[in-house]
Design a protein around this nucleic acid. Structure first.
Length: 235
DNA sequence: GCGACAG
DNA sequence: ATCTTGTCGC
């Protein structure tokens, strides 16, 4: 029986980048690229992580899809145990994110994630990994490209391909010149992903749920740093 | 071989 | 991502 959590917990024991990549390739086979969202979406979540010297701050915000109102937001702190290694972002950010998501009372229809989904050398970016563990729909939204070829822009978007297969899109949003990169995380189609991201980027480059989640964890980070690092302004 | 590289 | 003041521009 498949268990994403069992797969994840193997890794730290005798960790190596090669083993982590192998685990990603194995996990990626379980990604569902079919639309399993309800036709009428009610709640969309945005998740993000910020850091202090030793703590990771995971945050999640739930937005009402039709009114755009914030319905719920949660924060969680975890000790940072894994460095940032390109291609292995999920090993760093998964735990703080899960800790915050576990606190939610509402169940979002889909999660927007600040990082790639299928646009990843092993087709298992943070958004995919999170989706597998949650067994919930996720969409990857990143501000920079790690891998993939950008096609020609038509009507505000360009395909991102890898070995002739479509793995995501570059989207010109909010009138910005720099695109954001959207890809399937889990249990949602690429066209539906684009549609949802567009709904939240009428006026801004970053989708509203992600922007609010980012503000949430950043504010919390500044509070923590004030406590950890008292003002050195003494007369 | 070297550099670049989601956050 | 984080460390950080002012500053150029729409």
């Amino acid at each position: 029986m498949y268990s994403a959590k069992a797969e994840l917990e193997k890794a730290p024991k005798s960790f190596s980048v090669e083993k982590a990549h192998a685990a990603q390739r194995a996990l990626s086979k379980h990604i569902i690229t079919e639309d399993l969202l309800p036709n009428e979406i009610c709640y969309v979540a945005g998740v993000d992580v910020a850091y202090t010297e030793s703590q990771s701050i995971g945050g999640v915000v739930v937005i009402n899809h039709s009114s755009l109102a914030v319905e719920e937001s949660k924060i969680a702190y975890t000790t940072t145990k894994f460095p940032y290694i390109p291609t292995l972002l999920s090993f760093r950010e998964l735990h703080p994110l899960l800790a915050s998501i576990r606190k939610l009372e509402l169940q979002p229809d889909v999660f927007l994630v600040d990082g790639h989904g299928l646009i990843h050398l092993n087709r298992l970016g943070l958004a995919c990994h999170l989706g597998l563990i949650l067994k919930a729909p996720t969409i990857g939204v990143a501000k920079g490209l790690l891998t993939g070829k950008v096609g020609e822009f038509v009507a505000g978007w360009a395909p991102i391909t890898h070995e002739d297969s479509l793995i995501g899109v570059a989207l010109l949003t909010g009138g910005s010149k720099n695109p954001i990169y959207v890809s399937i995380g889990h249990m949602v189609s690429l066209s539906r992903s684009m549609e949802i991201v567009k709904h939240y980027t009428k006026c801004h480059r970053i989708p509203k749920p992600l922007q609010i989640a980012h503000n949430l964890v950043t504010n919390e980070q500044r509070k923590l740093q004030k406590l950890e690092r008292p003002t050195e302004n003494s007369e």
